[in-house]
Simulated scan of single mutants.
Amino acid sequence: MSDDSPRGQAALLGPAEVRTLAEEFGVRPTKQLGQNFVHDANTVRRIVSVAGVGRDDVVLEVGPGLGSLTLALLDVVDRVIAVEIDPKLAARLPETVAQRAPELAGNLDVALRDAMKVRPDELPVAPTALVANLPYNVAVPVLLHLFAEFPSLRTALVMVQSEVADRLAAPPRQQGVRRAQRQGLLLRGGASRRRGAVGRAVFWPVPQVESGLVRIDRYTEPPWPMDAESRRRVFAVVDAAFAQRRKTLRAALSGWAGSAAEAERRLIAAGIDPSMRGEKLDAAAFVRLAGTE
């Protein structure tokens, strides 16, 4: 991370520019892709500031849309890799940056990819930070995938639906039925914290929900040191435990273990009550369970 101040060379997008760009190349925001474009310059500057990225960072941006956040990032870092699933938006983003920040256009790479499937070998360099306005309907799966696939990511600052932000940043005893999301992210990435709220008025079209910022910092020294095979085993247990979250662990893990009786044996060996549900376990318990034979 660098303390270098923003260069201030990009002309950021406002409400009029966002609508004009969308009209120019026939983009209509779709609910299916979770497209709500930020049009407030102060909001994107705030996101970049809270992310704490600097010129030595390679930032991965998911769903850059029309380029509001992309332009603000290019003011601060020397390389942005934008992963966009919409072909029209992916094709237009370099042109937008060239028009509004010509001296920074060479610092942008655009990958026409699905963020749920993108792999390290599909990007030009390894990203060090994720900064994104994530589509509400796939925010958590995207985070889980990226932290699992990109060990180079040391930090993330994402804007997500306020309810999701609350769950991701909640203390363990307050995580409720969506604890799977928290535990999966904790095991794949690191500790997460709420970093503020974002109102509806800064988006076009205006969403029906409030948004929030969450920062995730990967552990420098993971509390559960795991090699690649150990991580695979742990993730398999987490996924199995929450595939049928209303069932007891004895029942939910029967497929993973081979039978309900074997699941019970392993649970007891790991010091876990087989009648509990997955949402009651902490990350350390999943690690213990994955290590049972």
Results as ranks from 00 to 15, higher is better:
residue 47 I to K: 11
residue 53 V to H: 00
residue 53 V to L: 01
residue 56 D to R: 02
residue 57 D to I: 10
residue 58 V to F: 01
residue 63 G to V: 08
residue 64 P to E: 02
residue 65 G to V: 10
residue 68 S to L: 07
residue 70 T to W: 13
residue 71 L to W: 01
residue 71 L to I: 02
residue 72 A to E: 07
residue 72 A to M: 03
residue 72 A to G: 09
residue 74 L to W: 01
residue 75 D to G: 03
residue 78 D to F: 04
residue 81 I to Y: 03
residue 84 E to W: 02
residue 84 E to N: 11
residue 86 D to I: 08
residue 89 L to M: 11
residue 91 A to W: 01
residue 92 R to T: 12
residue 94 P to L: 13
residue 95 E to Y: 04
residue 97 V to G: 12
residue 97 V to T: 12
residue 98 A to T: 12
residue 98 A to K: 13
residue 99 Q to A: 15
residue 103 E to L: 15
residue 104 L to Q: 14
residue 107 N to L: 09
residue 108 L to K: 10
residue 109 D to S: 14
residue 111 A to I: 10
residue 112 L to T: 04
residue 115 A to Q: 10
residue 115 A to F: 12
residue 118 V to H: 13
residue 119 R to S: 15
residue 120 P to Q: 15
residue 121 D to K: 10
residue 122 E to C: 08
residue 124 P to D: 15
residue 128 T to C: 06
residue 128 T to I: 14
residue 130 L to R: 03
residue 138 V to T: 10
residue 138 V to S: 11
residue 140 V to I: 08
residue 141 P to Q: 03
residue 141 P to I: 06
residue 143 L to P: 12
residue 144 L to E: 04
residue 146 L to V: 05
residue 148 A to T: 09
residue 149 E to V: 03
residue 150 F to T: 04
residue 151 P to T: 11
residue 151 P to H: 07
residue 152 S to D: 14
residue 153 L to E: 12
residue 154 R to T: 06
residue 154 R to H: 06
residue 154 R to D: 11
residue 155 T to C: 13
residue 155 T to F: 03
residue 155 T to A: 14
residue 157 L to M: 12
residue 157 L to C: 11
residue 161 Q to E: 14
residue 162 S to H: 15
